[in-house]
């Protein structure tokens, strides 16, 4: 074993251990913020594995998209959700956990059997390395054109949907009928909410102005 092979083996073991540990942490930790940060660790380890497979572009894209975009958005989602609420303990929760564990182990066994049982057509060609960018580009504009364009349309739809949700030009009627005490308030500073029925005076005042 020469130097390069040794470095490769050690990094493979380290990255695999990191990835498995972080992934288990994502699933098993009860603190959701830790789970989200560990998810970033999983993505970074996967990108390290891509580097070991001589796919530098895929590794960089993995970091850019999954760590830089997806994970940050998940973190935003968690941190902008206001309430730190403890879960009420459910009686006999262990049955659910046991069932989940059994299903997960079964799925793992199934996938493992599939991976070991399939006669993979392993390519003996050397990895494309730096030329991979050109190859990926060619594939995107020839035989993978349809999935590529469909993915872009999907993303566009998600974008438009997110904008419509965020702009809230149309408010559902039932929001106005709710009594004031049921409206969610910020924990640190309760807002002075005026219920829909008693807005007559303020409306008049604003009309005067």
């Amino acid at each position: 074993m020469n130097l390069a092979e040794g470095v490769q083996l050690v990094s493979l073991l380290l990255l695999s251990a990191m990835m498995l540990g972080a992934a288990l942490g994502v699933v098993l930790l009860s603190n959701i913020v830790y789970s989200a940060f560990l998810l970033g660790g999983v993505f970074v380890s996967i990108s390290g594995l891509y580097i070991l497979l001589n796919a530098g572009f895929v590794a960089a894209a993995q970091v850019l998209i999954y760590v830089g975009a997806v994970n940050v958005l998940i973190l935003f989602g968690i941190m902008l959700v206001n309430k730190q609420r403890d879960f009420t303990p459910i009686p006999n929760a262990w049955i659910g956990k046991l069932a989940t564990g059994v299903v997960c182990l079964g799925l793992f066994a199934l996938l493992g059997a599939m991976v070991l049982g399939t006669p993979w057509a392993l390519s003996t060609e050397a990895a494309a390395g730096d030329a991979a960018i050109m190859l990926i580009g060619e594939h995107f504009f020839s035989d993978f054109l349809l999935p590529f364009e469909l993915a872009s349309i999907l993303l566009l739809m998600a974008l438009v949907g997110a904008i419509i949700l965020a702009r809230r030009e149309f408010l559902p009627d039932e929001d106005l009928d709710q009594p004031a005490d049921q409206v969610l308030t910020l924990p640190e500073r309760p807002r002075e909410l005026v219920s829909a029925g008693s807005t007559g005076n303020t409306a008049d005042e604003s009309g005067d102005r």
Binding site: V44, V63, L64, D130
Partner: peptide, 29 residues
């Protein structure tokens, strides 16, 4: 490396995670 400048763009996208981590863990609004 062939990825070159793209690597820098990818790496610079990691920083927000550290910033969020620092902001969240300080326990300060």
């Amino acid at each position: 490396i062939g990825v070159g400048i793209f690597l820098w763009i990818a790496l610079s996208s990691i920083a927000p995670i550290g910033l969020l981590m620092a902001g969240y863990s300080s326990n300060n609004k």
